[in-house]
Nucleic acid binder design. Structure first.
Lengths: 151, 151
DNA sequence: GCTGATTATCAGCTATACTGACGATCAGGC
DNA sequence: GCCTGATCGTCAGTATAGCTGATAATCAGC
């Protein structure tokens, strides 16, 4: 995004503005941190979804991530091309592709998770660890219980 | 965005994921709140930047907002088409356009700011007012003093 | 063994925001 | 005064992310 001279006081209070720019900064930090490992942010999301779980279909993975199934196709094409995930038809339901991390995928994921944690650390540098935890907690509540119902 | 069944525990902790989805929800709430007033979120950002200040050039406004000058052209085309802002050449520097809110623009901005505040209130429903203030404060620090230098 | 639903895939569309090029204009050196 | 380089607004083209709609293969219920 273009250079930002700093907005007027009206926008400094604006949540859309703050969230958008915070998200953008975090995404840039993550992209830089992941570059050495040859993946991008959304691909890490896919790999995290696939990790430590039963194998799942593309559709299931897409729903978990909150992305469209057609978007998942392109993401998996890229990851499969890098040898990080494998697709093969489900024996029980041959419409489905079972998607799994490969060995290389698990290793890359391990390194990428460390890089991601470091990017988050940099992102959170200007606030105290306590504030950082409150920030994460508040976002979790807002994203996962937006109607105030308890989980 | 597509339906989200809820991610695994790895992603629930992930700041990029949380920020992206929080930003998306806030943007949707704002878009709905602004629809009756005939403007969208980015247009409110432009109008807030133009409000209560000396008239400024398109470039200055763009830098304040952190968007590209070419993006500003299209945004102002729309706002001018709705009669909410006026452009006219700067007498002192005829390369520049002086951009100002019209009377209708100021009135729309007044209503839109109320709608925006209400959208933020809905967004923050699941957290306490105190947590909401901490969230806003933490984001401000991260966005405006990302290197930890004091303002 | 039909009929309707589901899965993965693909083409095409939309929204957003950028880069690069252009003409008009300004500012500084001479 | 005049040339050179920089700046401003504009436009065309490009890139990215994500969607809709259509299609072929497959499944499940009757």
């Amino acid at each position: 995004m273009a250079r930002n001279d700093g907005p007027g006081p009206e926008l400094r209070e604006n949540l859309v503005y703050l969230l958008k720019h915070a998200q953008q900064r975090m995404a840039e930090l993550l992209a830089d941190a992941l570059k050495p490992h040859g993946i991008e942010g959304r691909e890490l999301g896919v790999m995290l979804t696939l990790a430590g779980r039963e194998p799942m279909s593309q559709q299931q993975a897409a729903q978990r991530l909150g992305i469209d199934r057609t978007t998942m196709v392109a993401l998996l094409d890229a990851l499969e091309g890098k040898g990080l995930v494998s697709r093969h038809p489900d024996a029980d339901d041959r419409r489905r592709n079972v998607v799994e991390l490969t060995g290389a995928g698990r290793e890359t994921l391990r390194l990428a998770m460390a890089a991601s944690a470091e990017a988050e650390r940099v992102f959170l540098t200007p606030v105290s660890p306590r504030t950082a935890q409150e920030l994460r907690g508040a976002l979790q509540v807002i994203v996962f219980q937006p109607d105030g119902r308890d989980s």
